[in-house]
Design a protein around this nucleic acid. Structure first.
Lengths: 120, 120
DNA sequence: CGGTATCCTCTACGATACTG
DNA sequence: CAGTATCGTAGAGGATACCG
């Protein structure tokens, strides 16, 4: 139950996130929501994947985006970056236990999304 | 498996969303992701709620935001808007069956989010 | 009460080119 | 291969005021 305090444009204090349950939903969304995050995690579900492979698998995301999301995921402790070899440089990304713990949600979301022929 | 074609700044065709499973995740996220959407649905889980009550419950969202999200949710068929009375004007929002079908995901997300003391 | 209308800022995302 | 650097734009989201 964390609240943070911000200062608005006129110097007044305002309380942000006087949390309750739905706030947990917002927090969760920040972790696995966001444009490509869920898909990245889902792609890592079985095995480590290399950076460029991930970019291709996502089909549409730029390297920059994938890079950004991966860094976020790393900071959040959901993903581990591993250098497999220099020369030629090879890097893989894989899920941590925490990352893996999100798979259930994503799988449920995927099934739900598919089961209603949801339009773009 | 829907693909759409866009034209880029230089007039070249590019294929967007050559879909696979994770794409379903992106689609799903568009429905229940987004800043306040999950929380709104979650707040409607038990009973219809009036507009201003919803705004207050969300604590931090502006009327404009809530209004926007509710319209999206209505279009997507997840929420029904119901005018209870004119004079004084009273409106409630409630979940459709489809909306209700998303609750499992949100509940799972909430529990997951809470179980790891996730930082803002 | 249940919204609209306005304005404004900020950052998310994409395109592109370049580097170790 | 695995990124970084740069630049540009759209639109998401907030503050505020007003309306039927």
């Amino acid at each position: 139950m964390k609240s943070s305090v911000k200062i608005d444009s006129k110097g007044r204090k305002i309380v942000v996130d006087a949390c309750n349950e739905p706030c947990a939903i917002e927090k969760g969304m920040r972790l696995i929501g966001g444009k490509w995050k869920g898909s990245i995690i889902y792609h890592l579900k079985d095995e480590p994947v290399r950076f460029n492979d991930l970019v291709r698998l996502l089909g549409g995301a730029t390297k920059k985006m994938v890079d950004q999301r991966l860094k976020e995921l790393e900071q959040e402790g959901m993903v581990i970056r591993r250098v497999i070899s220099d020369r030629p440089l090879a890097v893989t990304y894989e899920l941590t236990e925490f990352g893996r713990s999100a798979l259930g949600i994503l799988e449920l979301l995927r099934v739900w999304s598919e089961s209603h022929g949801i339009e773009l």
